[in-house]
């Protein structure tokens, strides 16, 4: 799968490219409005990550161009402007998702995969990892075709970790994703631990062949 990243900040470009490449995506980059416009006209991508504050023009115009060209690329808007207006404008123009800078790399991974899944499987939204199968739309988890019942938080943690398989997920990223923005202040994120403990136990008891390990007190990693 190939992804186009239209972003003028080279540092961010590098980090995103490195991270997405680890997930097996082919990542191309464009550093300006014109370059981005040129690339979307000549090539087809599965997903476009679009910064809307670009030198040379408004990123939203690229979105309009994609529509004019009748292209079916998935677009995730990346912007430092966390204004609701921009969000609505972008989504109305056909963007699939909206991510506010700064973001966790794991969050971007999860969003990209979610967008691609929706496109690939005709509305079906499932994740598979070893013998664990998660249906996000149906809110169900099956281990060896056996239904595993999880609460909302455990389910969200599992989905997030599975979207970032073999990657380090920092606690702050996990807290933000599962518990919401309001939780970003709690420094040590101790409260994550009890949910994580329950999830691990349930997975182990059901015979799941995936393992969640704690990493240096910084975060967690799902291994299969």
């Amino acid at each position: 799968m190939n992804i186009l990243l239209i972003e003028d900040e080279t540092d961010l470009q590098e980090v995103v490219k490195e991270s997405l490449s680890k997930e097996g995506f082919l990542v191309e980059t464009a550093g300006s409005f014109q370059e981005g416009l040129k690339k979307i006209s000549f090539y087809d991508y599965d997903c476009v990550l679009l910064d809307i504050m670009l030198p040379g023009g408004d990123g939203l115009r690229i979105l309009e161009k994609l529509k004019e060209m009748d292209k079916s690329e998935n677009v995730i808007i990346i912007s430092a402007k966390d204004s609701v207006d921009d969000k609505i404008k972008g989504l109305n123009l056909g963007a699939d998702d909206y991510l506010t800078k700064p973001f966790h790399i794991a969050e971007l991974n999860a969003r990209v995969k979610s967008v691609l899944r929706r496109k690939q499987f005709d509305g079906k939204n499932t994740l598979e990892c070893a013998n664990v199968k998660v249906d996000i739309n149906e809110f169900t988890v099956h281990v060896n075709d056996q239904l595993l019942s999880l609460n909302r938080k455990e389910f969200d943690i599992l989905v997030y970790l599975m979207s970032n398989r073999n990657r380090l997920i920092s606690k702050s990223s996990l807290a933000e994703r599962v518990w919401g923005d309001y939780m970003d202040d709690a420094d040590d994120f101790e409260f994550i631990y009890s949910q994580m403990k329950n999830l691990r136990k349930k997975l182990k008891d059901s015979g799941a062949e995936i393992k969640i390990t704690a990493m240096y007190g910084m975060g967690y990693k799902l291994e299969a």
């Binding site: 900040e9 540092d11 961010l12 991270s19 700064p102 794991a106 380090l168 920092s170 240096y216 910084m218």
Partner: peptide
């Protein structure tokens, strides 16, 4: 904000 976030991202990758 941005350099902070990028540094964090890089360190995550490093880890």
């Amino acid at each position: 904000q941005t350099p902070l976030a990028i540094s964090l991202n890089r360190l995550e990758l490093l880890l």
